[in-house]
Design a protein around this nucleic acid. Sequence first.
DNA 1: GATGAATGAGATTTCATTCAT
DNA 2: TATGAATGAAATCTCATTCAT
Lengths: 190, 190, 190, 190
Amino acid sequence: MASERREHLIRLAADLFAEKGYQATTVRDIAKEAGILSGSLYHHFTSKESIVDEILSGFFDEVMSAYRAVIEEGRDPRETIAELVRIAFGTLEPHRAAITVMQNDWNYLKDRLDYLTKAEDEVEKMWVDTIRAGQEQGLFRDDIDPKLTYRMIRDTIWVAVRWYRPGGRLDAAGLSEHYLKVLFDGINTH
Amino acid sequence: MASERREHLIRLAADLFAEKGYQATTVRDIAKEAGILSGSLYHHFTSKESIVDEILSGFFDEVMSAYRAVIEEGRDPRETIAELVRIAFGTLEPHRAAITVMQNDWNYLKDRLDYLTKAEDEVEKMWVDTIRAGQEQGLFRDDIDPKLTYRMIRDTIWVAVRWYRPGGRLDAAGLSEHYLKVLFDGINTH
Amino acid sequence: MASERREHLIRLAADLFAEKGYQATTVRDIAKEAGILSGSLYHHFTSKESIVDEILSGFFDEVMSAYRAVIEEGRDPRETIAELVRIAFGTLEPHRAAITVMQNDWNYLKDRLDYLTKAEDEVEKMWVDTIRAGQEQGLFRDDIDPKLTYRMIRDTIWVAVRWYRPGGRLDAAGLSEHYLKVLFDGINTH
Amino acid sequence: MASERREHLIRLAADLFAEKGYQATTVRDIAKEAGILSGSLYHHFTSKESIVDEILSGFFDEVMSAYRAVIEEGRDPRETIAELVRIAFGTLEPHRAAITVMQNDWNYLKDRLDYLTKAEDEVEKMWVDTIRAGQEQGLFRDDIDPKLTYRMIRDTIWVAVRWYRPGGRLDAAGLSEHYLKVLFDGINTH
DNA sequence: GATGAATGAGATTTCATTCAT
DNA sequence: TATGAATGAAATCTCATTCAT
């Protein structure tokens, strides 16, 4: 099913989507990059949408199952949040293209891939529930809005895809720890 | 030149571009929102591109002249950076739509509005020069990459447009100060 | 009726039509040349078509009444043809723009101004009848096609509008006589 | 590159352009004539302009290489002019449509296909240089304007496309010889 | 007479998708 | 699997024309 050829095509498409945007990338662009004609792509995919769907669902599946595993461990909210943050930063490198597409084309895609809002809702619930639990247990400040805080964390992490380059001074793990210090310094009770 | 009708149309377009993306917003969408027919828009604008150009150049002109004024004051790098950060956060509310468009459609627009890369280059130079000066004066750590640091700051501020809502717990000024504490804690020498 | 303003506008339009072609000239172009807005032209003319109609009918009216006058004199075919040729060359200068439009946009306009084909038919009849009469009287060669000959003469004269410049070595009268020598050398019986 | 399908479409388009004019012919007209939809034409051509470009460049390439070959033979000016005239008349039949388009839509197209003015300039230089050489050698009258004379010859030949029909009394060769007699009678020294 | 905003039909062009070969 | 030709819907844009002010 997931033949190598197919995987290769998906990677090509992902890079183009990331570079030029989903809509601005034509099916012809993808085909040309692969050295075939546009019609031939339809032997591998049913539609342009199905390609981006596969790109994003691959990313979401991985992130979400990692998230779920952490949640199920049932650790205390502070440590849970820390783990979620570490997971998110950990995807920057392997899923750069998917994250870029998600960042730039979210508004367009969220109305077309119902998969996305469902996933987003589930993710939000995990974070928000954890933050709330932390507040109830007196670990986190009471006056922050859990939903808003989640979004701030989420966007601040994903946007790093624009400037984070592997091989720099900080690797993904370093980034996480740095960010966590900053984050808890801001939302922790003292 | 900037008639009221025109201004109104630009605002309508900006909101639509921000909500659905530049490409996904059709000229018909804008016209319908304004209660006119698509052809009538061309009485006011020469092209769809000229509309988004006007939206973004309005934003850039304002930000950049504010930036330049700060730079010209010639204060010490730490205070200069602080002022730049305050200016940037200060645009979140009045220029929400423009910033959203810039965030989401940058890759598409940067190839079409040569204005943009020029402006971006000038802005980057202002920030990077200031950061470098801070390093030379021993105010900032020597081991951070000025360019990368600028990009991280830039994106972290602009991405706030996605979750920042005026009227919340923190206004733009509060946000700036909070962020500045965090930021200097990270890049200051100790 | 034919106010000076109106005449002026017609001349402006005629020059533009001649220079850029009827279709390629927009109503806005004409208005701009006149220093007004396009809507204002409609106080003077009912349509773009009515402008070109007026330009061409002015030209045709003049040529045709001159032609008719010659025909009615009932002179011998050779002299009649000579007079028709002289009249045609005589319009090159005063009606340069109209002739240019007629030459370049005939195919488009002939289907829209029924005036034109009627006029053309009448003119053709005058020439062809005269040529035939000349053949019957043994003045012109019997083996030339009257219709084709008329068209060749017609086009050869009108096309001169592209290179004829008043004030050169030959004026219109000189051109006519030169052409007539050549023409009769070719179509006369010897 | 020049597939048969493509050639066929170009011929269809050329006939329509010649009949109705370039601008008055819509892309839909061409497609309908070919029995396909307008969008399908863009599988073969990048734009309407590229179609007319191909039509005219095909014609110009042929005429100009024939012209160049004659010039390079370096015969005496009178014979060179005679050959140029013969070549031009010889294109009337095989390139009827292209010549008609060139005649009628020149003003519009010359501003859009820079190819055209360049070619026209080169052609003009060939003729004018030859005429001048003829004057210097005492073959042609000294009091004619070489540029004007060239244009007169050019237009007089091309305009024949409007009335010349193959299969009539005179074929292209006959026309040439007839015209050359007339021409040299006028421009030769005696 | 002129303005300026709008109409509305129609033009060129783009592009995801289909399908016979 | 791949090709190449085509579809058809929809997008941007043009422009003659109208009309209230």
